[in-house]
Design a protein around this nucleic acid. Sequence first.
DNA 1: ATAATAGTGTCTTTCAGACAGTATAGT
DNA 2: ACTATACTGTCTGAAAGACACTATTAT
Lengths: 299, 299
Amino acid sequence: MDKMINKQGLNEEQFLAAYDASKYDRPSVTVDMLIFTVTNEEKKNYRKLPEKVLRLLMIKRGDHPCIGQWALPGGFVEIDESLDEAALRELKEETNIDNIYMEQLYSWGDVDRDLRTRIISTSYMSLVDSSSLDVKASDDADDAKWFTVSCKLYQEHKTVTEKGYIFERLYKLSLSNQEDEISAVVKIVKSVEGKITKIQREIIESNGIAFDHAKIIQYAIERLRNKIGYTDIAFNLMSELFTLTELQQVYEVILDKELLKANFRRKISDMVIETNEYTKDAGHRPSKLFKFNPQLLGE
Amino acid sequence: MDKMINKQGLNEEQFLAAYDASKYDRPSVTVDMLIFTVTNEEKKNYRKLPEKVLRLLMIKRGDHPCIGQWALPGGFVEIDESLDEAALRELKEETNIDNIYMEQLYSWGDVDRDLRTRIISTSYMSLVDSSSLDVKASDDADDAKWFTVSCKLYQEHKTVTEKGYIFERLYKLSLSNQEDEISAVVKIVKSVEGKITKIQREIIESNGIAFDHAKIIQYAIERLRNKIGYTDIAFNLMSELFTLTELQQVYEVILDKELLKANFRRKISDMVIETNEYTKDAGHRPSKLFKFNPQLLGE
DNA sequence: ATAATAGTGTCTTTCAGACAGTATAGT
DNA sequence: ACTATACTGTCTGAAAGACACTATTAT
């Protein structure tokens, strides 16, 4: 095969030697990391269980563009590392954790995403057990902080057209911690015309969130909410041992809705293994501790 | 915000004027298109219905690297077009169709994907109604041809480890048309260790398929098989009017398995509208024609 | 009449949702 | 005793799977 010659009479070796990649303008490529974890809030009283919140790691931009705003951790993909390697490197830099759940989500390629130059960004989602984190990534040199995330649907609008419909949804994205509150509104337009379906995502409003990152966050949360229902990824957010109530809280805080205990336990029963240990000093009946049961999910 | 200055004392305007993107080595970015359609085979006799086959558009490479092999249609993303625009442009160039279903799948970023230079490629899947295609894209200047695709699981291997398991699957990918037969074997390794799940995709063998495109095709078929179960994307492969048997055949050829008629009809009943027309001259009982019913799917 | 497809009815099993009930440590 | 949580049983209706049966055209 490599002895074949092309129209210019070059074999592969000669062709590659003559190839000049710099002839064309190339975009820059970055990875953006969505690093989620779930942490406990303060206990309200000695009897109540602590509430859980979903958190996302963000970084305060120290330089233009979007200086002072909060952005997803990430950075340029080096010429000698794969996309996955770049994502792992960023993850390690930010959280100092190696062996962790990570999944590619989507690549964002609008021309004017970034004022500096043409930048295409591939987003990755990562789920971290907060107990393995400790203080790291909050006292980093760069201003990395965990934000409580919430993403709520607050407006829905359907228009029926001749050959289909247009369906608009507005999501309110709110991130907060002790010092900062940032937010955005993301509009998702699904249009069906004949057989053709299109989905558009647009930032309506963005307060303190850099670039188009509000869109990326909303997309990731949507994916997380979906995927939690038919995979076992939620266990990446749990510590080694956990109670079923804690597991349920994690599902509830991600889905942003309450679940019925009996039904939840039925649904996840195959994914956990009972241990002989129990919680202690809870101010009420102790709870059995479980661990993850790695197994094939219907494959 | 744009009046803020950074550590070098520059405001945003000054910063952007001084920004030199060419300082860093940048990868090239391409889009690869997976254009699927479903066509009829020849009727076996006057009574039998024609069988349906899933087809994928491929292009014979006329230059290095991989000269003579078959590759997915695609090309470089221009500096002034978005990823989606680049995909739409390629689609238009290859099929001459504009308004069509298209979805981003995944970005492939291994360092040595291409011998020329570092190339990151984002793959898009598109589904086309074959009746709207006619002869186009088969007599194009470049060697574009439709291949019958099949992707079959033919080996499965599970190893249980201390803290989880390793699950390997081998898929045989076969593409063929009158003149050519190309194929590949793709290995998918899912490893679960403790809570950490990893999925790797590797090309074991590739005969006549350029670059890492066998991997990309296998991924797309997997996604298509999944998505057909909970969305209405299959209708993009149908003409305006169709029989329920035709629709079922499309599902069957994608899923590569037979479905029960009564159950299938129950499942898709909400997505179709009855018309008053019937098929004719079929050699057996005529069939009612249906059309797509655009509607919200549980949203 | 026959071959081949068109189309429908219904039984069973599985699963999701809802709710009601009992159990138990810590103060 | 009381509070807050732990844990289980069961009813319901919806959906998925399996199968059997009837209907209708061109030749």
